[in-house]
Amino acid sequence: MSGTGGGGNGNGSGPRKRIVAVEAYCIGCRLCEINCLVKRSRSRKILKAFRRERDAVVPGIRVEESGHVSFALQCRHCDDAPCIAACITGAMHRDPATGAVVCDESRCAGCWSCVMVCAVGAVRPGKKRKVASKCDLCMGEEMPVCVAGCPNEALRYEER
């Protein structure tokens, strides 16, 4: 595991946009999971996504609950990401533009090393395709769909 050092966005350290969960206001509705699943589906349409791809797509976010306490958890895009270090093919890498940790599915061998080393359980094995599935901060979107769709603003997208 090597931190690449230095400041800035692309190399993993320093402030950059992150998804932050506000535990006090998470209402456990799981709309973030639903919106993520739709975003990651081929059609990106909720009815079609649930009818055809519900068992194929793994949402990159998951609501953890215990009693009335709940919060949405997704990849922390760690500064010193163990999944990148553990990846045997180099599929898991840091996007130079956003600093997000993303998986290049064309190179992923499905060995699940990343799944095993992730401390928060945010990398999950794909269901139908044998590739690692995780949050990519909705690359290309101004606002990740989980944040945009949270009805109680319990998810924030802010520089940290």
Partner: peptide, 12 residues
């Protein structure tokens, strides 16, 4: 036709 059994209603 529209219910996708996501259970948001159940939880809310």
């Amino acid at each position: 036709e529209r219910c996708v059994q996501c259970q948001v209603c159940v939880r809310q």
